[in-house]
């Protein structure tokens, strides 16, 4: 069975639960396939958790864990802890929720920066250092973090440097009234997540990841990616520009998108379709731009419009 079939099955399975958001579903899946992590920023009740659960359920054999971030959450609550076993008089390591395939970090901005950085190190390095010893994380380690844009009290906004660790930031947004009615009908008896059959095995996902890395990417488009990301540097409205990590992520996510589209190579349309999600959350606006109502997504959209694309 080919990888594009696997991708299509996975996508339709998740979309059957998360109604009316085919674009976001594909991009989040592409983010997973590219080996990255996604930050979902949206209002409560728009389906962030459902999306994470659906992805976990659609993958046969994938372990799904969820951490609700609170101000008193400690790094050990995420990474794990060694406890003295009174029978053997030895320390036994109890792995934390980070040792999983899919981790939902709910309301990540509610935890203290210390806890946040513990998770972020794990995300960046795919390893956790606990009490001096290194523990490698699983090959499929996908973090879906959520944060709520309307609450500010008692939150610790993610530091700019750590935003960079997220490959993408997506928003779900509200669905159309027709879709919302469909959601109501779906959930009349039981939640569709509970009914969801797994669509792909964990091994197939790893195959998809390998396939994504093999998607061909022309030299010219690499230059385009660099031009797009580089344009944020020296931009008058931007104080902190996007890093080379952004270029790398943009390339990888584009490749993963090609897998879902059934292509063996990346076209410029794919790059443009994910550029705002990959770049916007990494840049910090200059104060005067922020006060004059500019937004990072808008600036990236303008850059996409103005930078000549290879034709």
């Amino acid at each position: 069975m080919s990888v594009s079939d696997t991708a299509a099955r996975l996508e339709s399975a998740v979309s059957s639960v998360v109604r009316g958001q085919p674009d976001v579903v594909r991009r989040v899946l592409a983010c997973m396939i590219s080996g990255g992590h996604v930050l979902l920023e949206d209002f409560p009740g728009t389906g962030k958790t459902t999306l994470a659960k659906a992805i976990a359920k659609a993958i046969h054999g994938a372990v799904f864990k969820r951490v609700q971030f609170t101000p008193d959450l400690l790094p050990s609550d995420i990474l794990g802890i060694s406890v003295l076993d009174p029978r053997t008089q030895e320390f036994r390591f109890h792995p934390g929720p980070v040792f999983t395939d899919i981790l939902l970090a709910d309301e990540i901005n509610r935890a203290s920066p210390r806890t946040q950085s513990a998770l972020l190190e794990a995300m960046g390095e795919r390893q956790a250092t606990i009490e001096g010893s290194r523990h490698d994380l699983d090959g499929l380690f996908f973090v879906i973090a959520t944060q709520n844009p309307v609450e500010f009290r008692g939150t610790y906004p993610l530091p700019e440097a750590q935003m960079d660790r997220f490959t993408m930031q997506c928003t779900l947004g509200y669905v159309s009234p027709a879709e919302e009615v469909a959601i109501l009908s779906d959930q009349a008896e039981s939640h569709p997540v509970d009914r969801l059959e797994s669509a792909a095995s964990r091994e197939e996902i790893l195959e998809l990841m390998a396939a994504a890395r093999k998607v061909r990417f022309s030299e010219e488009l690499r230059h385009y990616v660099v031009a797009l990301v580089g344009a944020t540097r020296g931009h008058p409205q931007i104080q902190l520009a996007a890093s080379p990590r952004a270029s790398l992520s943009l390339m990888k996510v584009s490749q993963a998108m090609a897998v879902f589209q059934g292509d063996e190579f990346v076209s410029p349309e794919l790059i443009q379709s994910v550029a705002a999600d990959v770049i916007a959350h990494r840049i910090v606006l200059a104060p005067e731009a922020k006060y004059s109502g500019a937004s990072a997504r808008r600036i990236v959209a303008d850059l996409i419009e103005s930078i000549p694309v290879p034709v």
């Binding site: 030299e219 010219e220 230059h223 660099v226 031009a227 580089g230 344009a231 540097r233 000549p308």
Partner: peptide, 14 residues
């Protein structure tokens, strides 16, 4: 202005 003529220009075959 970065952009055409800037460092990221692709000058390979089109």
């Amino acid at each position: 202005l970065l952009g055409p003529g800037g460092p990221a220009t692709y000058d390979g075959p089109r």
